[in-house]
């Protein structure tokens, strides 16, 4: 007796679709997993200018964490995670909430806020380099208006330079966060606002207790994107401070790029990249896992 596909177990039911998609899966696996795997592999070899297969174990990793510049890079990444990600979320949320109040010229304002996103990081970096240059930018301008004692030279000092970078990043990243959160806000049932208003719940309380919890997925998406942005940040640093003063604004991506191309040190670069891969996974995997758990646990309505 034949088993019709309808009666078969569900996982065999879609095999034509699975078959049709298999090249995509194969390519995806090869490209993403394959290259990532090769990167990790190289980090255990003596590769310098060209990839070689001679194994050196954890040598690159040991050296890596003994390198001041790499450790500074990691610390800077941590600083940006707090300042840049939180800053973008707060500013983006405030902008989104402001636009969501049905203001006039919403489209124009939205375009203005989103515009920095369309600008290349290189341009952003250069512009902010000028703005923050004490002799050319904001400091010079304000002093020129008569406030002689005004100083704004964050890029010039090791302690503050990374925050200057955070500000430039904030300028660029807040718009995207705003759009993501605005989309989230727009997806919220309008009658929720009305229900809260009928109950006499103050606006700020509505935001905090009702709207923000609803935005959690949008916030998580934005935070993940922003975090990934930091992991990838290279051009902004190169254009704005080139890692300086000293190594005060170095970031892992720049360390990796410099080692990969300029310093001809594939081993160190891939070791750094592998560390980043692991740290990204450490952030993403729990998020995905929790989501999967929630989905699986939710009862059908």
């Amino acid at each position: 007796m034949k088993t019709s596909p309808r009666n078969g177990p569900p996982r065999f039911r879609h095999w034509p679709a699975a078959l049709a998609l298999s090249p995509v899966w194969a390519i995806a696996l090869l490209l993403f997993v394959g290259t990532a795997g090769y990167t990790v592999y190289l980090s255990f070899t003596a590769s310098r200018m060209m990839p070689v297969n001679e194994f050196v174990g954890f040598e690159h990793y040991i050296k890596l964490f003994g390198t001041r510049r790499w450790n500074t890079s990691l610390a800077n990444m941590g600083i940006l995670c707090v300042t840049y990600v939180l800053g973008c979320l707060v500013l983006g949320f405030l902008l989104a909430a402001a636009l969501d109040r049905k203001v006039r010229f919403e489209n124009t304002l939205r375009t203005i806020f989103l515009y920095p996103q369309a600008v290349s990081f290189v341009v952003t970096g250069l512009v902010w380099q000028w703005l923050m240059n004490p002799g050319l930018g904001i400091q010079a301008a304000v002093q020129g208006w008569g406030w002689e004692s005004f100083t704004f030279d964050w890029t010039q000092h090791r302690g503050t330079a990374i925050y200057a970078v955070a500000i430039a990043g904030l300028w660029q990243g807040a718009g995207l966060t705003m759009i993501l959160l605005l989309a989230g806000l727009r997806g919220i049932d309008h009658s929720l606002w009305q229900a809260a208003r009928v109950e006499g719940i103050p606006l700020w309380r509505t935001y905090v207790s009702v709207i923000l919890p609803e935005l959690t997925p949008a916030i998580a998406t934005a935070a993940t994107l922003l975090f990934m942005g930091i992991v990838r940040t290279y051009d902004l640093i190169v254009a704005m401070t080139n890692g300086g003063p000293g190594s005060a604004t170095e970031l892992p991506a720049k360390f990796i790029m410099d080692n990969l191309f300029d310093r001809m040190n594939i081993g160190a670069a891939t070791a750094g990249a592998s560390v980043m891969l692991i740290s990204v996974m450490a952030v993403i995997v729990p998020v995905l896992y929790i989501r999967a758990l929630r989905k699986g646990g939710r009862k059908p309505v």
Partner: peptide, 18 residues
């Protein structure tokens, strides 16, 4: 070697900055 070269450049710049 470029790797050593890079280490020295990093060091000198660190020193100059602080």
């Amino acid at each position: 070697d470029r790797v050593v070269n890079g280490q020295i450049v990093d060091l000198i710049n660190e020193f100059w900055a602080a």
